[in-house]
Write a protein that binds this DNA or RNA. Structure first.
Lengths: 209, 209, 209, 209
DNA sequence: CATGAATGAGTGTTCATTCAT
DNA sequence: AATGAATGAACACTCATTCAT
């Protein structure tokens, strides 16, 4: 390392190397989110994301392995934030009903408030290769497991009836909500998504009969 | 057209010009189904589908407008068959419970028995352009409406409770089943899909509580 | 052979086999002229010419070796008609001046009266392969030689001055008229082409000085 | 690094980013000129031009919008050079005769000395689409207007006779020379083109009579 | 003679990724 | 670390021509 680079390091002394790295990393992810939401999956060339982020094409590859890595990272980061929000919202003392209601409300509200993310998560990211879809599955898993844990808690507490298979029910709940969100998006968001939470929970809790 | 030619058409119904045309049309669709299921959406070049069908590349374009048209046609044909199966299975006298149970059982069984179709419908076709996705939506609509009609029938007969919003419930039911199928596929089909129908219906009918 | 096709033969019984052949040959050429003039060189697929002529694609190949052969034949026929028109117009007793004036007038008038032919000859046929261009050269040759013969006649008669090189002058005359026609076409035919004949001949006869 | 390369570096020390960009731009144009002249319009695939220029296919598209853009640029550059040559050759004090003589001599000499250019300009470029032909027309226009200005100058000075229509005469002159060049090329260049200039001017100035 | 379904060679253009600077 | 010019593999689609009927 030369004196010149040392000098540069002194200049950036206030922000650590790690945080600078983190800054540009986030910059690119935010750019990717915006570009994909605006131009769709097929209109999201690496060069366009780089331009939006204000960096050179090559710079992308200093922070991400390849294009797919950008998408996977994007999902992981955003979904991680969402799961963190759930965890902080669901109090220890919540009943299973309350926890499930919160999950559904946060699910709908978070996507309603962040249409970009909703569009990318529900529409664009699903146009990806098998490898990417497996990664998406991994990223979604913690969320599905969160739902399962709530179901188990309800069954243990006697709030939910016995005989349910939590592995199947978690899918039915996640898939149901997922479809409601996609349908809302495709409709052109002509109604309030968060207002569907009541009906959704009502169906999940009491079923058809 | 004379009586004679009409008569001939009846006689040669199996190998008329129209049916030969139909044959090659189906041949290509079957090849497309196989190739997409095997090699994924991105590995399904037109030339590969042509090779699998045993026809020249150019022949594809005598039967389909473009590559996307193959996929749309594929979905329309297969989904049409499925909806026909539903309609012929659901008897007039069926209660809403029975009808919903049949829908779920046919949904799971049909996809379990035709893994190629399941793979294409659940994984590959979702990686398509917005235009294609709209077409898919149109193709799926009759099915979702079938579910809605069963819900309404149940509510009218007093089998299902009042206060349900059929527009939301139909999404929760379709989305739930859809997620179960996708999960089964991604798991590597390590368990029986059709055996999940009981638990699924149980949840739909009685809910969690 | 059925009675039906026999009946057809009776209908065409008045025209000999040769003339029927000739008829379809001409039919295709007329169709080609129309299609090329309307849709341009690149829009003139063999199938389109066949459709315009009311015959099957394959029928074209019973009368012409290949696509290029259609174009060459087209030019030969039409240019042949033109040269015949010249020859019948130019009287034995005409002076070279009069003959040249007639050539120019017929050249301009014929193309003005047949815009289709003009378009194909001046614009479309020049977009062809080298082989075709050589053929075009051969087809045009008799016409250029006609011009040369008039020049020689004028020099022999003393009407035209000595020292001219007929081989060069014939090119200058043909090229000049050709450019005037093309320019008129590209301009959108906003003025009368045949009215340019006077000025053209005036320049050819007296030059600039 | 050797003295030789050092020497070269000194020589090319002035090469700015812009000039290097210009270099590759010219490189591709020169390659296109050579390839089109050698293999004809239809044998000039973009990949062949790239190979001849020693660059990758994709590189072409960093400098040119598309294939047609290469041809248009080629014509504009080369014709621009030619017009510049005319302008610098024709002195203010030249009489119209002298100016016209120079135009004809440069026209013939320039094309005789650059057979590639001659071939492309006279034969290949004329096989292009209507859009391209319009571009060609635009590129040729300044040259035709140069001829017209000389004619007008001669008429004003009394060198050329009155009553001429400069708009028609410019076409007759340009078209005449053009045909002589094309004929020379098609003949296989078996005689000297530049030696035809005398006869050509002689005809233009004095006409036939 | 006539048909027209089938053929399959041929190519301009995009864009993820690299690497010399 | 950052750049961005250069790379080159990959692919849908057209259409002149053939040939079994």
């Amino acid at each position: 390392m030369s004196i010149h680079s040392l000098h540069l390091n002194l200049n950036t002394g206030v922000t650590s190397l790690a945080s600078r790295k983190k800054e540009k990393y986030d910059l690119i992810l935010e750019a990717a989110l915006k570009v994909i939401a605006e131009h769709g999956f097929h209109g999201s060339q690496v060069s366009r994301i780089a331009k939006e982020a204000g960096v050179a094409d090559g710079t992308i590859y200093l922070y991400f392995k390849n294009k797919e890595d950008i998408l996977i990272s994007l999902l992981r980061e955003k979904l991680g934030e969402l799961v963190a929000k759930f965890n902080s919202s669901i109090q220890e003392g919540d009943t299973a009903d309350e926890a499930l209601r919160k999950i559904c409300e946060i699910h709908y509200t978070a996507l309603e408030e962040n249409v970009h993310l909703a569009h990318v998560a529900q529409i664009e990211l699903r146009q990806s290769s098998i490898e990417l879809r497996k990664e998406i599955g991994l990223a979604v898993k913690p969320y599905i497991e969160l739902i399962e844990s709530v179901i188990r808690r309800g069954m243990d507490a006697g709030t939910f009836r016995q005989g349910l298979d939590p592995k199947v029910v978690r899918l039915l709940i996640f898939g149901g909500m997922d479809e409601v969100v996609t349908s809302w998006l495709i409709s052109g968001r002509k109604y309030s998504l968060s207002e569907q939470a009541g009906k959704t929970i009502d169906f999940f809790l009491k079923g058809l009969s």
